[in-house]
């Protein structure tokens, strides 16, 4: 059953496109009303209901509400630190994208530095060892090693001759 006649399709599609454009335009206009600082501060806050998204980036309802709240606080004269403190007071350190350097959070800051230091030490030692090995003259051979190789060769030749 054809609900629409062939001549009505273009009009229907045009109307749908217009509705979509208006909806997108309205959403964009709502975001444009916010100060760019809202998004800057929002990027320093984790979205409570999202996975790996900040308040500045997320389109979740709670993140949008938090952006409006940030805007209101900025309008009332609060600065970046005060806004972050407001959310930290309610959600704890969890809400901050950059956790403060104290307690267990210190590990987050220190472990990468320790890992880099360990890697530098290991690589330096390996390079030094390889350079020493490369620089050592070939004719310097441990006499005991030489004796062992000669003995093995003699044994090997002996086995081969016996076959």
């Amino acid at each position: 059953m054809n609900v629409l006649r062939r001549t009505e399709w273009p009009y229907t599609l045009a109307l749908l496109a217009l509705v979509c454009a208006l909806a997108l335009g309205s959403a964009a206009a709502q975001e444009r009303e916010l100060d760019p600082r809202v998004f800057e501060i929002g990027r320093e806050l984790r979205c409570p209901t999202c996975v790996s998204e900040s308040v500045g980036e997320s389109n979740a309802a709670i993140a949008r509400e938090m952006r409006v709240l940030i805007q209101e606080q900025l309008d009332q004269g609060a600065n970046r630190a005060e806004v972050l403190a407001f959310f930290q007071e309610r959600y704890g350190d969890w809400i901050l994208q950059n956790p403060p350097m104290r307690g267990l959070n210190l590990l987050v800051w220190l472990l990468p530095i320790v890992a880099v230091l360990v890697a530098v030490v290991v690589i330096t030692r390996l390079l030094r060892r390889w350079r020493t090995a490369a620089e050592r003259p070939i004719d310097v051979v441990d006499p005991s090693d030489l004796d062992r190789v000669r003995a093995e060769l003699r044994g090997g030749l002996g086995d081969g001759a016996g076959r």
């Binding site: 409570p48 209901t49 709670i62 959310f87």
Partner: peptide, 13 residues
């Protein structure tokens, strides 16, 4: 309606 109480309580979901 505006989820402000949810934010005030530090709700995660």
């Amino acid at each position: 309606g505006d989820s402000r109480t949810s934010i005030a309580y530090g709700l995660f979901g």
